[in-house]
Each structure stands twice: as C-alpha cells, then as structure tokens.
Simulated scan of single mutants.
Amino acid sequence: MKTLNRRTLGLLLGGLAAVAVFGSEPSALAAEDLSKVVLRVGDQTGATKAKFEAAGLLADIPYQIEWSVYPAAVNLHEALKADAIDIGQAADSPTVSAIAGGSKIKVVANYSNGGLGSSLIVPAGSPIKTIEDLKGKTISPTTRGSVAHYLVLGVLKKAGLTQDDVELAFLNPSDASAAFQAGSIDAWGTWGIYKARSIGTLKATVLIDGPGINTGNFVLSATDSALADPGKVAAIADFSDRIERAFDWSKKNKDAYLDFYAAFTKQDKATIEGLYPDEAAYVRQPIDDAFAASLQNVFDTWKEAGVLSGDLKLADYVYRGLPTN
C-alpha cells in the first residue's frame, strides 16, 4: 500500500477538518483547526510512541496527542470503555471480548502478521517438549480474553485436550512474568516485550507460535464518541497511516529497528533479532466483509469455549469510513 507524502496527507486532513468545522470546501484555516484537535491515545507498554520516535514519526503531527500507557490489552480496553482515551491498538481477541462486554467502540484499522508474535513458552530445561505434554500442567494465558488466552485455547484443541485437562492461571503480565520466573506455572501464553524479556533473560523456549491458530490481527479501535467528532476522525486517519509507516520503517530499516527494540526491551540484539520476523510481517489489511467475518469467528470461538455468551453481530462494530491512502 502506498503512503501519502506529507503535503498530500496534510491537505487531506485539512480538508476533512475544514468540511467538519465550516461545512464547506477546504480553506486556509483548515490546518489551524486540526491543530486544535487533541487525540487521546492508549499505548500498550509505551511501544507505539517509542517506535514512532525511533522512526521519526512524531515530528510533523498536525494535532496534539495525549499518550496513556497500559501494561496489557485488557487495561487499554478498560480505558476505552470508560472513555478515558479515544483510540488504542490491541489484538482482535481482547477487542472482541471488550465489545462483548459492552464497550462502545468500533474497529477502524487492521494490521496483520498472520499469527506471529504471540507464543506459548516454557522455562529453560522444561520437560514439556510437545503440546500434548501440557496435560495436567499449569498454564497462564495471561489475562482472560487476551490474544494469549485465545492461543492457549487453540493449542489445547490442537493437542486433543480441553480446559479441564489443565489448570489455567489468569494473571496480569507482571504477575505472570514473576510466576514464570519462580516456576509456579509450567507454561505461559505471552507476546511482545514480555516474550522478548523471557527468552532473553530467562532463556525460555517457545513451545508453539500463533500461526494457524491466531489471526495475527492487531486492530486499532476508536470510541463511538471520538468517531462522532470529524476533527478526531481526521486525526485517527493520520494516526492509522503512521502506524502503517512505522511498520514500513521496521521492514526497511532492520538494524535501526533492532537497536530501538533492544534498548526498549533492555535485551541484547541477538534476542531481538529472533523476534524481528514477527514485526516485519505486519501489513495493513482492508476493513471489509472478510475482516468482519474474521472478528465474528473470534467471538464464536470464545463462545464455544464458554468465555463469552449471547449473540453479537461483529459487522456492526466495524467502521468502514476511515479515510485511507
């Protein structure tokens, strides 16, 4: 997908803001109007802001950003539900869980790496060598409804096991990390910075990765109230473009990305290089019927597992009007 140059993108954003404010064609005052927009962004672990900075994507933002950092998707989605932030990015699994829980949000953009990124890991020297060996073991899927929880359910099904064959310990990421380090859990479903630190510091082993089970969809959600504000819609469109540009920067600047992420996670570059394919595989995907069907499948999987109940039409929670390049 081609990226708009800054002048063209600025004209697009200015035009949207002008039409929203004046109900007419773009004017010379449009850019000033957008500069008055404050976009409240939820950021898991602070990784998005840090990557934007490394990629040089914070220098020319035509609106203001208020950043809030959360340790995991469940916390970010609590903030979205409380209308404490306007947008936030998380995997599709916790996003569907949040929608089922009554969050007034819609998915506005999607970036996928085909299921890479989330993994089920075991401690160094673990006797667990196959997914069938998980029977009778204690597994932390991190938080309930997370992408790692979705992975664990899929892994158990793949091994011919059920939730009754294991003990699931739902913990926030910090507590799960401590439990994993202490040896009080036998396996941990995790992702990103937590996965990197466990492999780098604790020499953990990946038992199985997400492809074939998880979609790898990393979606950007916005509150209904933010989407009712044309100025914020214009800012969200720009922000979603910057996410795409940041992934593109990672692909084209491997060494720079490795330097950035090694410093951010406080791990050596060799460890981070092993995780680089997860990052490099991300591509922006269309917000279309196929994507809505994918979200519906996530809900149906949660429902089958007894995590969620009731009926939900996920197509109603997909926002297709975001301007894209």
Rank of each mutant, 00 (worst) to 15 (best):
L16G: 15
A17S: 13
V19I: 07
A20M: 03
A20K: 01
V21C: 02
V21T: 13
F22C: 08
S24D: 15
A28W: 13
A30N: 00
A30W: 02
A31N: 01
S35K: 12
K36S: 06
V38A: 12
L39F: 04
R40E: 11
V41D: 06
D43P: 09
D43L: 05
Q44I: 15
Q44M: 13
T45A: 09
G46T: 11
A47H: 09
K51I: 01
F52N: 01
E53S: 15
A54R: 02
A54E: 00
G56H: 10
L57N: 08
L58Y: 06
L58E: 12
A59I: 05
A59G: 12
A59L: 10
I61C: 05
I61K: 07
I61S: 04
I61E: 05
P62H: 01
I65F: 10
S68G: 06
V69F: 03
A73E: 11
A73P: 05
V74K: 13
V74D: 10
L76F: 11
H77F: 12
E78N: 13
A79D: 12
A79W: 09
A79F: 08
L80I: 06
L80G: 04
D83C: 01
A84S: 14
I85Y: 03
D86Y: 03
D86G: 03
D86N: 09
D86V: 04
I87Q: 05
I87H: 08
Q89P: 02
A91Y: 10
V96F: 01
A98M: 04
A100W: 06
